[in-house]
Every structure is written in structure tokens, then in C-alpha cells.
Design a protein around this nucleic acid. Structure first.
Lengths: 335, 335
DNA sequence: TGTGCTATTTGAAACGTTTCGAATAAAAGC
DNA sequence: GCTTTTATTCGAAACGTTTCAAATAGCACA
């Protein structure tokens, strides 16, 4: 393997000079610069980034840790992070936390391979996060409520989102409203449920536990949940589904078995993933500020890295996206 | 910043001993091991991964370089790569090549920050790839035909895929078949087009250039292309669209303006993205072996890393997925 | 010719690990 | 009790850079 020493030797200069030349430091004469560059070229020299980072103790890179690199939800988030990172001249790498404590993610968290990181992954423990954070290694947490030194959470107001969605349904005259939730350990899902509950309560509608069914945030989960709901004798007139993917699955199922959306049953989702505006009918949902979340996260990281003060935590808000899967119950009765 | 030296000092051992203890090397006594571990714990010691990698000159990580970290197409590919990588005890990081020569990707390519990499990004130049590849740094290229030492391409037989799609259309009685292609610099798109051409030729159907329109592989591009096609006086009875995303966009457009799919116009896509089976009607398409591609790429990297011989290049095949957007023209005429 | 500059080049010391070979301590063999 | 073995521990040399402080060269000026 060819190192900077080889380059220096071939160019007949000291390695320090070679280093300066290679990095375009001004103090080296034009001529030696050329010599060094040429030598590097001839030897096909490639610098060892680690060695450099080690010496500089700065990586100019931040990591984005996701529990799953794939999935439609993340695209926009990643774009948000990325845009801001490049603005700051930083590199972004994404890695996943599949495998928990032994995952790639863990390695980045505990081995100082990046200058900071943004985490959206629930299989990384709080403990691990607390241990890793330090002034030189700020962590931004998405969708996780954990305020610590050098750790700032950004959450979206899921409860209010759930409240909005449910209230909307109620305003449209529905009072038999089912809820399809996420896995029990999902904080988001839980909050969305609470919003649902609150709206119900506010309008003096009793919560019926048989109408709360949980899925796993996937399309298939939504199908299954829909099936369970459809199987009951009394059917709700509307469903608030805790994420769009499940909502799409549910719609798919209803259509398959001849239950019309929204004529027979109204559906409102959550997240506003790209796909939801392309379905027929188009999904009514709650906007999750994904891009903004990513961008904000990035911003905060750089503020922390610069030693600036930031808010202790951030809350982003949601917005109702009215499309075609919720119908006014009056219209329905007349229809 | 606390280093292994601090740990060693606090535990009253030599740094070498501390290192052994921390890495679980057997030759250190149980007692000192405990002492060291405790000291590390107390100081909240976190090792510097770079320093370690530097010394070991091995990173145990491979990179996956994509031109865009987002996008539905990549999910499955990533899963494929990931699955195999973890099997080999390697870490995977994804980074993107947005920004070409100055991108994060470039840094990984030229600075030995990983042991090997898989590239699916057309804004990385061939030259750069050739320069970077070496026995110690194998590169697997997806959808790019570039055979060099330590560089193996994996391509899918796009031409044959295009041929199959088009032939299928012809067999269903269509002979006015339009083509919606990708951007000019897309090798895949070009190959798919050639397959289309070949099928046409084989059945003595003249190619009509006004029926070739190009999009940018996005949904919006598909919509636009569909619009252009619909605007012509004579309309084709079928379209072969070079990727599913555009096909969905096209369908969307046709449905919007009251052109029925498949009754008025048949559509066949390419890729078989997840979404395509959830549309109404379900999209007929050509299966692109995304997962397999990722998994194979991973496999090849590890073979190369082990110094084993591999094929010079790999070709993966496609498969027709018949669903609902192609109709037999006879049915149509009768209907 | 010597003095003082500036511009360039250099050697050596880091950066934080791992790992080799040697040193030491403890145990065992006789 | 002395030698041999084995189990631990240790010191020092890497790994490939960057960067500081010092050295040298080149030049102008007196």
C-alpha cells in the first residue's frame, strides 16, 4: 500500500512537504507542488482518511441512524438531513440499527467515527444514548422524548395530530370511530391514540375497546386490522389509522371485500407519505413534517457542534390533509 | 477526551494490558480484566474506532453508494446487501453521491474508509472507479458495464426485459406500441429501449419515433409523457414504460383525463416496485431482481476480499409479472 | 561581506490504538 | 532450592497522517 511517505520519497521531499502540497497549503512552492502531485499520480496514491481524521480528531461527518434503511417514510427525512449537512460542508452517512447493540449503528455511536448523530431507531437503548452523548458528540433524537445534556429530542405533536384527525371525523358526523394503532412500544403510536381518546372524550363519545386494534405499521398489518374490524357485527363508520401504510393496507382490504371507502367507511391516516396521494380514492391524512424534521435535526446538530445553545427540545406540528377518504355522514345517509 | 491511556492509568496497568482486557483477549487475568473494565466504565471511555482501524488497516465495513439515498426502488436492494453483509460480520453504511466528485461517496471511494464498495450511481465517473479499485479495495458496480481488475459489474438483462415486455404486448394483439423511456444517460433505459426495438423488428412492426417519449424515471415524468402521448391524434393501444414509477404516473394521468387503463390503453412497466401491486388496476410489469442484485453484490465483494476468483461479470434476469394493466386487443375490440 | 528578511522545506512529535517480543511473576517439576 | 514452564504483564514500535517549531535557502539591503 502506497503511503504519503512513498510519495514524498519519489518526489524527493519531506513527508511534511508532501502533506502540505497534497492539501493545497499555500506555503509550498509551485514547483514542488507539481512534483508531489505528479508523484502521487504516478503511484496512484490514495490517502488514508482515518489517519487524517485521527490526527485532526474531526471527521466532518454526521451519521443518521435508522432502524431500517429502507421504507418509504424515510426518503424525505433523509433529504432534509442531507440538504442541511451539505450546506455545512459535512458528509452524511446512513446506517442502520438492525441488530441492536451489535449493529453498525452501535459502532458509530460508541466509537467516535462521526462528529455527531441523528437517531430515529427505537432499538437503540436510552442508556446507550446517554452514555455516548458528550459536548464533542451531540445527538439529536427523533421521536423519542429524552432530554439530557448534549441530547436534544425533536418530536412531532402526535397527540395533537391524533386529536385533529379524530375531531375532523367527529365534525363530519361520525361517532362510531375505530382506531388502528401501532406496536405497543411505539411512542408515536401511543400519542396518536391519546389524541384520539381526547377528541372522543371532548365530544362525550365513549371509547369502545373492541374498536381499538393494533397493527405493526406495515401494509399487511393494516389489512389484518381492517379484517378484524370488518368481522365485527357492528361496524364503525370511520377509522383513524395511526399511519398511512396501514391505512393503505386497510383500504386495500376493504376494497377487496366490497366495502366501499369512503361510502361505507371513512378512513383517515397519519404521516402523509408520498404514496397516499396517488391512491384511489386519495387518502385523507395528517401531515407529518418529515423533511422539516430532518432539516431541523441537522441544524441542531451543527449548532451543538459549534457550542451554541439550543432549545432543550423541539416540537413540530402536524396538519390535516383533506382528501377523499372521509365522507360527511349526512351525505352518506342520504346516499 | 478520555483515551485508553487514561483507562490504563486508572486501572494501574500498562496500556497494552488495557487494550487486551477491553478486547477480551484471553491472556489477561480475570482480575485485571475487571479492574480495567471498571476503570473504563467510570471514565466513560469510548474507543476511537479510527485509531483501531488505522492500526489494523481493516475497517470491517463496506459502503453502498447510491445517487440518492431515498427512493422506493432502493429499499429492497439495500436489504439484499445488508443481509449478506451481516452474515459476514461486516457493517454496512450507505452514502450518497449527490455532488459527484466532492460528495461523501467520493470520500469513501478515495480515502480507504471502508474495505470495499458497491456502487449504484451514475454520477461517479468510470475514471474515478478505475483509480480506486485495487485488490484491497474491490468494487462491485451495479447497472454499469465496466470490467476492470478488481471491479465486477452486475447488470440485469434489461434488453431482454424490454424484449419480453414488448413481445407480450404484441402477443396480446397490440401493434401500435409507444415507449416511455428514461433520461438519455441511463444505460438501463437505453437497453430496455433496445429490447423494445428488437421485439418490434422481429414482428415486422415499424418503429415510430413520435411514439418514443422520454421522462426522468419519476412519477411526474410519467404523467408528462402520458400527456404527450395522449395529445397525439392517433393514439397507441399500448405503452411500454421503462420503469414502474413512470408507469404509475402515466396511469394516474390517463385516469384523470378519462382514458381507461387497460380498456383504452394497455400499460406495462418495468421494475416491479412494491407499490405496483397495490394500484387499481394492478400494474403489469417486468420483475427487476433488486434483492438478489443486492445480495449478489454483497457476496461478490466478500469473495473478492477473500482473494477468491469470481466471474468477470454477472447478468441477472428478469421475469414478466402479469397483472391487470394489459388487455388482449381482441377483448378490447369486442368490448 | 555580513545582516536581516521572507519564503520554503524539514524533522519530529503527536493522534489513539493494536500487537510483538521481552520481562516478570507464579506455578510446577525434580 | 533450583530450573523449567506457564500465565500475565509490560514497553515500545508500529499504523499514516497533520502540524509545530526549527532549519535552511534565497534574496535584498546596507
Amino acid at each position: 500500500m502506497v503511503t504519503i511517505k512513498d510519495v514524498a520519497k519519489r518526489a524527493n521531499v519531506a513527508v511534511s512537504t508532501a502533506s502540505y502540497a497534497l492539501n493545497g497549503v499555500k506555503k509550498v512552492s509551485e514547483e514542488t507542488r507539481r512534483k508531489v502531485l505528479q508523484a502521487a499520480e504516478e503511484l496512484n496514491y490514495r490517502k488514508n482518511g482515518f489517519a487524517a481524521d485521527l490526527k485532526k480528531s474531526k471527521t466532518q461527518t454526521i451519521a443518521l441512524i435508522l432502524s431500517d434503511l429502507s421504507g418509504p417514510f424515510y426518503s424525505e427525512l433523509i433529504r432534509g438531513v442531507q440538504d442541511i449537512a451539505v450546506d455545512h460542508g459535512y458528509d452524511l452517512i446512513a446506517c442502520n440499527s438492525l441488530g441492536g447493540q451489535n449493529s453498525t449503528a452501535a459502532k458509530f455511536l460508541t466509537e467516535r467515527r462521526v462528529d455527531g448523530c441523528i437517531i430515529l431507531a427505537h432499538n437503540i437503548t436510552n442508556e446507550m444514548i446517554e452514555k455516548s452523548a458528550s459536548p464533542a458528540f451531540p445527538i439529536v433524537l427523533l421521536d423519542r422524548q429524552l432530554e439530557r445534556a448534549h441530547t436534544v429530542p425533536i418530536i412531532v405533536d402526535n397527540k395533537n395530530g391524533g386529536y385533529k384527525a379524530t375531531t375532523f371525523l367527529i365534525q363530519k358526523g361520525h361517532n362510531n370511530i375505530a382506531f388502528i394503532g401501532g406496536p405497543a412500544d411505539s411512542h408515536d403510536g401511543q400519542m396518536r391514540f391519546e389524541g384520539y381518546l381526547e377528541a372522543l372524550q371532548e365530544h362525550h363519545i365513549d371509547f369502545q375497546s373492541r374498536w381499538k386494534v393494533t397493527g405493526n405499521f406495515t401494509r399487511e398489518g393494516g389489512e389484518l386490522a381492517a379484517k378484524i374490524i370488518a368481522a365485527q357485527d357492528e361496524r364503525p363508520t370511520a377509522i383513524f389509522v395511526a399511519n398511512d401504510e396501514m391505512a393503505l393496507g386497510a383500504m386495500e382490504y376493504f376494497q377487496k371485500v366490497g366495502i366501499r371507502v369512503p361510502e361505507d367507511i371513512s378512513i383517515i391516516g397519519f404521516d402523509n407519505i408520498l404514496e397516499s396521494k396517488y391512491t384511489a380514492p386519495k387518502l385523507t391524512t395528517v401531515q407529518h413534517p418529515k423533511y422539516e424534521m430532518g432539516a431541523l435535526a441537522s441544524h441542531v446538530i451543527f449548532q451543538l457542534l459549534d457550542g451554541e445553545e439550543t432549545e432543550k427540545s423541539f416540537t413540530l406540528h402536524t396538519e390535516l390533509i383533506m382528501r377523499e377518504t372521509v365522507i360527511d355522514i349526512m351525505t352518506k345517509l342520504r346516499g
